[in-house]
Nucleic acid binder design. Sequence first.
DNA 1: ACGCAGATTCGCACTCATTGCAAATTCGCA
DNA 2: TGCGAATTTGCAATGAGTGCGAATCTGCGT
Lengths: 210, 210
Amino acid sequence: MSLRERKRARIRQTLVDAATELFERDGYDETTIADIAAAADIGTRTFFSYFASKEELLFPESDARVRAAVEAIASRGPGEGPAEVLLRALRKVGDDNDEMASRLAALRLRLIRTVPAVRGRGLQIQFEAQREIARNLAEAFPEQLDEVSAAALTGAFVGAVTSALQVLLDDADALDDPAAVQEAVRRATDVALTPWLRAPAAEQPARGTA
Amino acid sequence: MSLRERKRARIRQTLVDAATELFERDGYDETTIADIAAAADIGTRTFFSYFASKEELLFPESDARVRAAVEAIASRGPGEGPAEVLLRALRKVGDDNDEMASRLAALRLRLIRTVPAVRGRGLQIQFEAQREIARNLAEAFPEQLDEVSAAALTGAFVGAVTSALQVLLDDADALDDPAAVQEAVRRATDVALTPWLRAPAAEQPARGTA
DNA sequence: ACGCAGATTCGCACTCATTGCAAATTCGCA
DNA sequence: TGCGAATTTGCAATGAGTGCGAATCTGCGT
């Protein structure tokens, strides 16, 4: 890794840290990009060569997560069907999310619930991730899934978990308690995916299809 | 309806029309709110007393759709289980959307695919709608569904259809082929519903997705 | 060590969305 | 007709995001 790359990575991290700090202290809307840049000792203009917008600061590493899921799909066992593989891949993402202990993750969760712009960006990122995952899933099971079915299956899984989680975390005053969040995530996955587990033969999702 | 209300509704519609026109002619990003307001003969400042942002212009009537779905849920038949009711409710929304013939709907579809800000807002609106629908679904089936399960079911359903459509509509050829869209939606609903239909022991719903 | 080509940083000026404020205008109704 | 409430707007700010170009770095020879 060249000096340039290292320096860049370091500044990037500094920006995320500074932003986390400021968002927590002053609030998201109250913190300007100029503030963040200043706190990281770079010019305001330069900020945009690291992140395209203020929201992006809250979703660094999103690439890595998708990559992890894709790998999980690639390494499927011989006996696994699409649903099992997908389930395993999504669990992986959820576990990585165990960095839920990280300040950033907790902050993100709070801001997603309270700042529309953040929620919007979050949904978009999730949607893109789904898409990518579905693409790989279809590739891994060319016999059983075409792109549309793979997307439907992925969308159903992720949609179920996301929605369940939304409800669970809504009343939760326990957002500050990482353990409680963990618990909620686990419960959401359980509730959302139990039906699939009970229906093990999801091998040919598209029945009569014309 | 008072004069005030009528006038307000008229102006609102004028704004939507003007915006549709301008977005189609000059593009979304190229059209400023000032342009739209001017085209509708109101002050730029006043625009914000009709729509909170530029994106909102593309999603008027979203309330009405949710209301329609909620009504569909309320009017469930005696033999219907949660999945069937939900299916019927969402189909209702989809049909209303058959105003797909409307310029606005077509434009919206295009902009959702090409303008991130619009996509983000669209996802957010859909998410809120899901939430509301799930709430009502849980209310309609207090015995069989708690809020979390209802959210999961709804999320699975909507997520499946949305994702399937996304993939399908990406190959822009399908845009003109309503049959292909119908087929994709059916397949997506199949995928999403499969695991749920067998869950409640009391039900033996018809396979044909009614 | 020296110097250059390409990459990075960043100040400056701009366009726009969005908001608070307060004056001007309009509406519904007594 | 005239008043109080709601609506419309102009004005001024703030802050995000972008294009441009000059000033600085860095990596890589020589």
